[in-house]
C-alpha cells in the first residue's frame, strides 16, 4: 500500500512553477532517497508535503487522505520533519526540544512518547543538556527525536547528514535504516550518492523539477543516468562489506 501519492501536482515558488503534472507514489515502510543536482526541486518537494507550499493544481494524498483538507496540526500528527538548517540559538534542554514534537497533540501521554523517542535516538543521557552545547551529531539526533515525538509514520529529512563527520553520518543513516525496518516510511534528501546507494531501498532522482527516475536504488544509479543528470563520469566498484557494486563519481585527482 502506498503511504504518499502525488497526483498531477503543479507547484513551486513563483513563476514558472518548478513542478508540472508531477505524479509519484512512495510505498509504506520504504526508505526513499531523494536525489538530484542543486535546484532540482528536492527541498521544494518536501515543502509540498508538509504544506509550506500549496499545489496550484493536483493533489497530494497521505495514507489515502488529501493533505489539502488536513489542518497543520492534523498533518503534523502524521509526519515528522528534519530541516536542512536548524539553528539552535536558544538554550533549551534536549528534552525540551524533543517535547516540542508534541505540539500538535493534546496533553496526556507526552512523557512516555518523549522518553521512547529519546531512547530510539540514543539521547536519553542528554535529556538535561543544553542543545547549544551539543555536537552536530548529537543535535541531529535530538532533532530526529523531536520528529519521532510527533508520532507520524512518515519521516521527511532534508539533507540530515550534510554537516556531520563520517562517524556521525553513519550513526544517523543506520538509525534511519532501523526506523524504516520498524515500519516508518522515510523520504530523505541526500546529496551524497554513496549514502543513497548504501542505505535507501528506493531512489527518486530529480532534474529541473522532473522525475528522471524512481525505482529501486540499484536500478536508478547507472553510468548513463549519472552522466545525464549530474554531468559526471562514474565508475562502478565492488564493496566487499556490502557484498555488491556501487557507483562512484570518477575523480581524476592530482
Amino acid at each position: 500500500m502506498d503511504s504518499l501519492t502525488f497526483k498531477d501536482v503543479n507547484g513551486g515558488w513563483g513563476e514558472p512553477l518548478l513542478f508540472e503534472n508531477l505524479s509519484l507514489s512512495v510505498p509504506r515502510g520504504s526508505f526513499t532517497a531523494l536525489t538530484g543536482p542543486n535546484g532540482s526541486g528536492k527541498s521544494t518537494l518536501l515543502k509540498l508535503i508538509y504544506k509550506e507550499i500549496r499545489p496550484t493544481e493536483g493533489a497530494i494524498y497521505l495514507n489515502g487522505g488529501n493533505i489539502a483538507s488536513m489542518t497543520q496540526k492534523e498533518l503534523a500528527r502524521k509526519i515528522g520533519f528534519v530541516a536542512q538548517h536548524h539553528l539552535h540559538e536558544y538554550a533549551f534542554t534536549a528534552r525540551e526540544v524533543v517535547a516540542m514534537g508534541r505540539y500538535a497533540h493534546p496533553r496526556g501521554e507526552d512523557d512516555a512518547v518523549i522518553d521512547a523517542a529519546m531512547e530510539a535516538c540514543d539521547i536519553t543521557h542528554l535529556a538535561d543538556t543544553l542543545i547549544t552545547t551539543l555536537s552536530g551529531g548529537e543535535q541531529q539526533r535530538v532533532i530526529l527525536a523531536r520528529a519521532l515525538a510527533q508520532q507520524g509514520r512518515l519521516l521527511l529529512l532534508d539533507e540530515p547528514v550534510n554537516h556531520l563527520d563520517v562517524k556521525h553520518q553513519q550513526a544517523i543513516m543506520e538509525l534511519l535504516r532501523r526506523l524504516s525496518h520498524q515500519g516508518y516510511t522515510i523520504i530523505c534528501v541526500l546529496h551524497d550518492l554513496l549514502l543513497a546507494q548504501i542505505y535507501s531501498d528506493r531512489t527518486i532522482m530529480l532534474k529541473d523539477g522532473v522525475i528522471v527516475a524512481h525505482d529501486r536504488s540499484d536500478a536508478v544509479f547507472t553510468k548513463e543516468r549519472l552522466a545525464e543528470v549530474y554531468q559526471i563520469e562514474a565508475h562502478q566498484v565492488f564493496d566487499p562489506v556490502l557484498g555488491r557494486s556501487i557507483w562512484l563519481a570518477s575523480h581524476r585527482g592530482a
Binding site: 515543502k47 508538509y50 504544506k51 509550506e52 497543520q72 496540526k73 498533518l75 503534523a76 500528527r77 509526519i79 515528522g80 520533519f81 528534519v82 530541516a83 538548517h85 536548524h86 539553528l87 540559538e89 536558544y90 533549551f92 525540551e96 516540542m100 514534537g101 505540539y103 500538535a104 532533532i143 523531536r146 510527533q150 521527511l156
Partner: peptide, 20 residues
C-alpha cells in the same frame, strides 16, 4: 507559551510540527 517556544524553531520545522 507553547506556541512562543515553537516560534523559536526555524519556520519550516515549526510548521511541520503543527504550528500555523
Amino acid at each position: 507559551h507553547r506556541s512562543l517556544d515553537m516560534l523559536l524553531l526555524d519556520e519550516s520545522s515549526g510548521r511541520a510540527a503543527g504550528l500555523s
